[in-house]
C-alpha cells in the first residue's frame, strides 16, 4: 500500500516540477528555436502522458492486488494484448522520431545561403576566436606556424596572403539581427563544442574538420556560449558570447574593426 502511494506521489511531484516555468529553456531568438520549442513541448507532452499513465498503472496494480488473502489468478500471457501494445508503442515511438526530423533537416541539410554572413570560428584550449572576411569578402589562407595568440593572430592568418590582410579577428561573435549567418567551426587542438542556448543549436568542433552551422538570429542581445564538449582542465572556463546587434550597429562595428 505504502509503496503504491509513494510511486504515485513521486510521479506526481515529478510531473508538477517539470511544468515549472522557472526551469524552462531560455527565450527562443530565432524561428528555428521556436520550432524546436514546439517539438520539445510535443515530445514532453507525449512523454508526460506515458509517464503518468504507466506510473499510475503501476501504483494502481500494486494497490489493487496487494495480498488481502485473495487467490492469484493465473495468466501466462495474452498474445492479442501483446500485439496491441507492441503496435501502439511502435507507432507512438517511431511517430515521435519522424515528427522530430523536420527541425533536424532544417538545421543540418539546408543549402548554404549565398547572402549569409560567413564567420570562421576557431576553438582552442581554452578560448574562442572569430574571423570575418574583410572588404574583399574572402578569407585569407592560414598557416599554423604563424599562429600568434598574444599578437592577435589566433587563426594563423598567413601574412603572405593579401586576401588575409583585411580579415578581422574578434574575441566575440557579433552578428546582425535578421541576416542568415553561416559559422565555419574549426578547432586547433581537441574537440570542443559551440552551443547557443537561445538559438537551440549545438555543434561539436572537431579538429581536422570544418563544420558549418547556420542560423538567423532575430532578437538583439548578448547570449553566453559555454563550451559543451570536454576539452581539458579549462573546459568550464572557455566562455564566449554571441552578440546579436541591429544591422546598423553591426555595420558600425565592422567599419570600426576594419580601420587599421
Amino acid at each position: 500500500m505504502a509503496i503504491a502511494i509513494l510511486i504515485a506521489a513521486l510521479a506526481g511531484a515529478t510531473v508538477v516540477l517539470f511544468y515549472q516555468p522557472r526551469w524552462w529553456l531560455p527565450d527562443a531568438i530565432s524561428a528555428h528555436a521556436r520550432a524546436y520549442d514546439s517539438q520539445l513541448s510535443l515530445t514532453l507532452c507525449v512523454v508526460g502522458l506515458i509517464f503518468v499513465f504507466s506510473q499510475g498503472l503501476l501504483a494502481w496494480v500494486v494497490f489493487r492486488y496487494r495480498d488481502r488473502g485473495q487467490a492469484a489468478s493465473p495468466s501466462g500471457g495474452n498474445h492479442k494484448l501483446e500485439l496491441v501494445w507492441i503496435s501502439v508503442t511502435a507507432v507512438v515511438f517511431v511517430g515521435l522520431a519522424v515528427t522530430g526530423q523536420g527541425i533536424w533537416a532544417a538545421v543540418q541539410m539546408g543549402a548554404s545561403d549565398p547572402r549569409a554572413l560567413r564567420v570562421e570560428v576557431m576553438a582552442k584550449q581554452f578560448a574562442w576566436s572569430y574571423r570575418y572576411a574583410g572588404q574583399d569578402g574572402a578569407f585569407g589562407r592560414v598557416d599554423i606556424r604563424q599562429i600568434d595568440d598574444s599578437g592577435g593572430n589566433p587563426f594563423g592568418i598567413d601574412s603572405r596572403d593579401t586576401q588575409g590582410a583585411d580579415d578581422i579577428t574578434a574575441p566575440l561573435l557579433r552578428v546582425p539581427a535578421g541576416r542568415p549567418v553561416e559559422l565555419l567551426l574549426r578547432s586547433r587542438d581537441v574537440i570542443h563544442n559551440f552551443f547557443v542556448r537561445e538559438l537551440r543549436l549545438k555543434q561539436d568542433v572537431v579538429p581536422g574538420m570544418t563544420i558549418p552551422l547556420r542560423f538567423t538570429a532575430e532578437k538583439t542581445g548578448t547570449y553566453e556560449v559555454p563550451c559543451s564538449e570536454l576539452c581539458g582542465l579549462g573546459h568550464h572556463q572557455m566562455r564566449s558570447a554571441l552578440v546579436v546587434m541591429t544591422p546598423e550597429a553591426f555595420e558600425e562595428w565592422l567599419q570600426e574593426a576594419r580601420r587599421p
Binding site: 506510473q55 533536424w104 543549436l201
Partner: peptide
C-alpha cells in the same frame, strides 16, 4: 517495483534524447 518505476522514469527521457533535433540542445 522500484526498479519498474525507475526504469520508466529513466527510460522515457530517451524519447527526448533520441531525436537529434532535440538532442542538439540537450547533448552534453
Amino acid at each position: 517495483l522500484g526498479f519498474v518505476s525507475l526504469f520508466i522514469t529513466g527510460g522515457i527521457t530517451g524519447l527526448v534524447l533520441g531525436q537529434p533535433g532535440l538532442d542538439i540542445y540537450f547533448h552534453d
